[in-house]
């Protein structure tokens, strides 16, 4: 959903909200790898943990060259992988990397997934971010419900697992999702304290 100049401030804000909500929800619905894009996404997620992304983010956008960094990382992983199994010669053009914009999008998605997992773990431990001004009821239970939801359990399974009614389980998931959306808004500077 792109913003256009003739949109009202409210519409523009709604569009921003929509983007944040979609990003958070799609990250929560991520169910593992299914396509080449997802496989590449999982490798990018691993690349994130190497600390290279943090270093590149400090650079101006034109100097980042994400593609080259990710390419080197993936080639190294595949090289290690092949040493465990078949020994095939690896041609130079083995990897065809997407453009930097796609890679940046993948890196941000992977980063968001990691961020969501960390915040859900906080909730499971009863930790609520002080910057969120809308209180979260039963944060531990909300965290547990979100964890089960992210792991692909249905609402019925979550209700059964946590000993809640179906409606209560649904409310916990909704509340947790709202909390994550608000916190992501704060992180992205939209709803600063």
């Amino acid at each position: 959903m792109s913003e256009t100049p003739d949109q009202s401030p409210d519409d523009q804000m709604a569009a921003q909200f929509e983007r944040i909500i979609r990003r958070v929800k799609s990250s929560m619905n991520y169910r593992g790898s299914y396509s080449t894009r997802d496989i590449l996404g999982s490798l990018v997620a691993r690349w994130l943990t190497s600390g290279e992304w943090d270093r590149l983010k400090a650079l101006p956008a034109p100097e980042r060259r994400i593609g080259e960094s990710v390419r080197r990382f993936i080639l190294d992983r595949i090289d290690q992988l092949r040493r465990r199994g078949e020994q095939e010669p690896m041609p130079d053009d083995l990897l065809v990397m997407p453009d930097d914009a796609t890679l940046t999008e993948m890196a941000e998605a992977a980063e968001l997934r990691a961020w969501i997992h960390a915040r859900v773990a906080d909730l499971e431990n009863g930790v609520v971010d002080e910057r969120v001004k809308i209180p979260v009821r039963s944060p531990r239970q909300v965290g547990q419900a979100l964890r089960l939801h992210i792991n692909g359990n249905t609402q019925r399974q979550i209700a059964s697992e946590l000993g809640l009614s179906l409606g209560a389980a649904n409310k916990r998931i909704l509340e947790g999702t709202n909390y994550l959306v608000v916190l992501q808004g704060i992180e992205s500077g939209l709803t600063g304290v």
Partner: peptide
Amino acid sequence: DAALRMQALLWLHAEQQGD
């Protein structure tokens, strides 16, 4: 509270989509 106002709006939008 301007921050609370923004958070409330975002919360309401998220809840609306959740519903």
